[in-house]
Structures are given as structure tokens and as C-alpha cells.
Design a protein around this nucleic acid. Structure first.
Lengths: 197, 197, 197, 197
DNA sequence: CATGAATGAGGGTTCATTCAT
DNA sequence: AATGAATGAACCCTCATTCAT
């Protein structure tokens, strides 16, 4: 593998293990099997590693999200597919998941703009899908879109978080269908219950 | 005000502004209007400030959550009340909200156990409410409880996060009712809704 | 006991346990059962405690040394008595012994003058005794007095040191007679001794 | 010179000047002509400098002591040689002498074990020599060996101490022969001496 | 390109000393 | 006289970054 990738992977691994601030360049260099100074041939500084992680590594994931919603035709299928791919990708690369979740919930940080943009991109996808559903008639129209986006984004994030904190011991992807079910139908009583209303 | 409180408030304020690791004892001391050394009369070390923040400051909030679900009788009202109080408290103390959100999503950190326990407590409340609703017949029985807890917890968290990142410019509490509505009914179109559109 | 003594004793005890620099005013205050600030009513500063220790506590011991050599008449008996009292006094107050031995062998220290003066006083006593012996004809005349003083002083010190490092587990005073024997006769074999063996 | 040596020498020089606890890393670094941080490339921490001083610098001296007693054949010559080399080595490196004397007489200190072991090694040499003398018939058999070792060790130490405190102004090695003379013959009047007087 | 020894600014922490009560 | 909370200077140590090889 090329040295840039080796360093980036090593860094994410170390960040995942210890958190960004508690990780040292020396640790990353050792993990990557290069000298400390070598890292500065590929990255401007320590912060830049995180920035580039966002720029290159997660950008590719969001392309897969785009693909995911591109294939199905109905809104529900698009949403289901998005979430399945989301969980798949994060399950596939646990270190990335850890670093992404941790850094995304930091507030004042470098690469802040990167992260905001990335989250926005994700929520834009959700918006599109939801709007499609509203056009289809499969999704309610009396929704505050800003809230719906957070609602879905947050729930998925927390499911991933739990999986991370559990040590990644169960299959994350199996959560996709039940989760979409909750998004669509909520936890409220079934149609019989509604009929009695 | 009590010096302990002054320091704790100052620390949370500084942590909220810059993040735990980028905050210095000197900054906290200055913000609190005390000497650097004074902090060590009240806290064992820098980490201990965060630990005590969790132990004393947020514990009180969770007691309010308990109160919140104790008053209403129906599950839906309990849930609504819980979320309203949750948003209220976090809106009331924005610094606390920022630090809480940031640290809760860190993985490897001191006070890890504190935080896990706190999150668990919150999700236990949700479990109880949901189970009550299932007994009432107002909440579906075909739910995977572990998932429902994350679903609600995550969505609320993300709503708070968004509010924080927006700079706290809108009224967070108004989100409570629409959010509960989403939890209960989901985003799926009900037949009437579709007809009326 | 008066507070001055309590503090001085506590300080010597703490110094003996941890060494001067690793001892804190707080520890001494706690040991003495007084507040930190109280110490400064009796002592100018931390260093002053050591200085006063030399001035008051050990000065009294050296008066006993004077007494010891004053009573016997022959040089050998004076020497024997001096050393016996020396070992007795140091055995009686082990903390004093530890602090005295440690600080005496420091070079650059406050109270330097105090210590030098004290050691000189001790060696002056030895000089007097040895000179008396030379007059008596019981001690050789072909001696370099400066060396003899160190010879005796050093040997006694090291015997005390060993006792300290052993944890003070044996009776130090029993060393007095064999030690004086070595001073007087040396380790060399006398012809009689060889014949009798 | 090797940077490790430069730092070690600088440290011993500063320790000799000010004592271990009053010396700062900054002073040592300045004396060695390196940056503060550089010291930590060669030593684990401040304490470690002292430990390594004992491990490397003084160990070599004790090898010379071994050589010194190895060459002569009679006990007296061995003892004379040991003490001459001892004084020589300490005279040659005054800073080493100061630090060694000071730290050896501390009680509660790091590297305690190192120091105890070193002192024991020295006294073991003395034991061997004395026992040889007893076999030869040149040294009395009615000796308590534990005391003899302290007697010799302490006297030599104090001679060195005096020389240090005098500012190293006279030739220390000339003390060797008179000192051995005292060890062997003691200060007591010999029968011939008494007769001639 | 790669190295890793060297740097030195910066931060957490300690603790002798003071002083208002 | 006695207290002990408060102070802040000082120090050890870390570690991101540089640069000569």
C-alpha cells in the first residue's frame, strides 16, 4: 500500500483507540511503520490528518450513499437502502466509524466546516428522499423537514454509537429494516388501534 | 457564589468554548477569577473537573427527568413530558449541553463509566415509558426495545446538537411536540392525510 | 508540650522519613497537629526549621559530649565515654540521628555554617582528648591530628549510619567499646595476640 | 563528546554545585548545551539521571577497586592500595565525589538499592582483605568484622568529605599511607615508642 | 524521499508563603 | 495566637514540528 494510505489508516486506528488529542505523532508513525518526520511529507500537521481523513476517506463513503439512493425507485426503498449502506460501511470500517462519530459531535474543532458540510450532505439526501415520498403519497406532508432530517440522522447515529460502545459484537446491518420500520410507522399502536380512535 | 461552583461553571464554559483538551487550567482559573492553584483545592486534577461535572451537575438534571415522567399518567404524555423537560434543561444551560454532547460521544475517556451509566439511566426511563404504552395498547408490541431506546435517544440528541451548532438561535422546546409526533406516528402517510392532500 | 517543640519534633520526624526537600509544610503541620500557617509563627520559613534544629536540638547533645569527656581522667576513658554518649544519644533519638547524618553530608545547603561549626566542635573535643593522651604517653605522638579527628569522627558516623540503615534493630551502644579498641590498637596483630592464638 | 556523556557530566556538575533537589532540568540542559527536552531522550526523568550515574559512572570505579586489591599479595599492601586508589579516583573527579558522598548518606531516596549494593560491595572487599590478613597473621583475629568494615569505610569517607568541604585544596592521596597506618596500628602508644619517649 | 535526533514552547501540578478572619 | 483558604511562581515533562544527514 502507498505510504499516504498507510499513514492515514494508522492515524485513524490510533485516533479510534485513544482519541485525537491523546494520540501522538510518534504513535501514528510507529503504527504506520514510518519515521515521525515522514508524516510531515504527506500531511501539513497533525490537524491536517483529520482534515484529509474527512476529505478523502469519508467522501468516498458518501458517494456510496448517493449510489444507494440512486438505485431504488420508491422513497421507502431509497431510505431503506441508504440506511443499510450506511450501517454496512460503518460496520466494515470500525475505526473510521469511531473517529467519525467522535469528531462529528465535537463542536469547536478544526475541519469544522468539513464536518458540517458532510453532515449537511447526508441530511440533504434524506430531504430528497422524504420529499419524493411526499410526492408519492407514501410520506406525510405535515412534516417539518428540518426536524425529520435530524430525527433520522440522529437515530441512525445513535444505533451506530451503541454498536461501537458494545465493542462491535453484533451485526449492525440487521438493524436497518427495523429502524426504517420505526421511521415510517413510529412506535404508535397498529391500524386496529387507530381504527378504534 | 461558592468558589466550587464558580470554578465548575467556568470550566464548563471554557470546555464548551474550546473542548476539554484545548482548554487550559489557566484559562479556567482566569474565567473563574481565581488563581491556578485554587482549582486544585477543589478538584483532584483537570480530569476530575469533568468527572465532577458529570457527578453533580448532570445528575440533578436526570432527577428532573424522573420527575417529568412521574407526573403524567399515559405513556404518550410521559414521553412528551420527558422530551420537553430534556430540551428545556439543555436549552437553559447551553454550556452544559455542549460539554455533555461532546463528551458523551467520545469513546476512550475518563469518566467513561459515569457517562455510560448516565446514558443507560436515560434509556431505562424510555424503556419504562414504552413498556407502559405497550400495556396501555397505545404502543406497538412488535418492537425491539433495544432499538427503540436508541431511536428516541439518538433523535433527541441530534435535535439538541443541531440547535447547539446553529448557535442556539431558535427555541429548542418547540421541537418537543413535533418530535414526539414523529416517534409515535413515524413519517409514513396515514390514509386520511393522503386523502386530504 | 509547647507548640514550638511539637512542630520541631514533627518536622524532624517528617524529615527523617522523607528527607528535607521531599517533606512539605503541610505534612509537618499535620504531624504536629497545627495549621500550616501556625508554623510560620515559630519559624521564619522551611529552611529555618532545619537551622533551629541545629541550633537548639543538637546543641544540647554536644553539651552532653562536653560533660562526657569532663568526667573521666585518662584520655582513653574520656574517648570511651565520648563515644558511648555519642552512640547513646543518637540511639535515643533516631529521627534526630537520621536528619543529622543526612544533612551533615550534604554540601551546599543552608545552615551550612551551623553544621560545619557543629562538626568542628566535635572534632575539637577529639583533638583535646588525643592531645591529653599524648601527654599521658598513652597515645602516639607521630600522628597527623587533622587526620586522626576525621578517622575517629568518620568511623563513629558510619557505625551510626549502618545502624540507621539496618532499621535500628540492634543495640548501638554495645559498639562503643569494640570501636574504641579499634581506635587505640588498630586492626594489626600484636605479637602477644598472635602467640596466644 | 557523546551527548549522553555531556548531559551526565553536566548533571553531576550541577548536582554537585546545588544538590539534587535544588538543581533544575533547565540548569542541566544549559550546562550541557542542549535543549531541555533533549535530556528526556537519554534519561527517563530527573531521578533516572542519578540512577544512571550510579549504574555507569561509579560502577567503573568499583572495578578499579577490585583491580587495586588484586595486584598486591599481602593484606596490608592490598588495603593500602585500595585506599590509595579510592582517594585517587575521588580526587580525580571531584563532582562525582560530592554527589556520591551526598547521596550515599541520604536515607530515603530513589536508587536506594543501587547505593546500598554499592556500599556493600566496597565493604565486601574490605572483609576479604581483612580475612586474608587474619590468615597471614598480620591482622588480629579478635575482631568483629561488621564493625571493622564500618570503621575503615567511615574513616575514608570522612577524609574525603573533609577534602570536599575544604574546597579540594590539598592532595587527598597523601592521606592514604597515614590513614592505613592508623587502621593497622591505631592511635595507641606502641611499647617501643613509649620506651623511647 | 526518508529519517529521527533535537528543539523549546506550553501545560499541569505542587507547595512555600501570606493574610483576612 | 491560630487558622487554612488562596496565591502564583516555579518546575518537570510532553510532544508537534523541524532539519541536517
Amino acid at each position: 500500500m502507498d505510504k499516504y494510505q498507510r499513514i492515514l489508516d494508522a492515524a485513524i486506528s490510533v485516533f479510534a483507540e485513544q482519541g485525537f488529542f491523546q494520540s501522538t505523532i510518534a504513535q501514528i508513525a510507529k503504527e504506520a511503520g514510518v519515521a515521525d518526520g515522514t508524516i510531515y511529507l504527506y500531511f501539513k500537521n497533525k490537524d491536517d490528518i483529520l482534515v484529509q481523513f474527512y476529505q478523502y476517506k469519508t467522501r468516498q463513503i458518501f458517494e456510496r450513499f448517493r449510489d444507494a439512493v440512486g438505485q431504488p425507485t420508491t422513497a421507502e426503498e431509497k431510505l431503506r437502502c441508504l440506511i443499510r449502506v450506511h450501517l454496512q460501511e460503518f460496520q466494515k470500517d470500525r475505526n473510521m466509524a469511531i473517529v467519525y462519530q467522535a469528531e462529528t459531535h465535537q463542536n469547536r474543532r478544526l475541519g469544522n466546516e468539513q464536518i458540517k458540510e458532510m453532515s449537511k450532505m447526508y441530511r440533504d439526501i434524506i430531504s430528497e428522499v422524504v420529499e419524493l415520498g411526499q410526492d408519492e403519497g407514501t410520506i406525510r406532508k405535515d412534516l417539518y423537514m428540518g426536524l425529520v432530517k435530524r430525527f433520522i440522522n440522529g437515530a441512525v447515529d445513535e444505533v451506530i454509537n451503541s454498536w461501537i460502545h458494545s465493542g462491535g459484537q453484533y451485526d449492525l446491518v440487521t438493524m436497518a429494516d427495523p429502524l426504517v420500520d420505526l421511521f415510517i410507522k413510529g412506535i404508535g399502536g397498529s391500524s386496529e388501534a387507530e381504527l378504534t380512535d
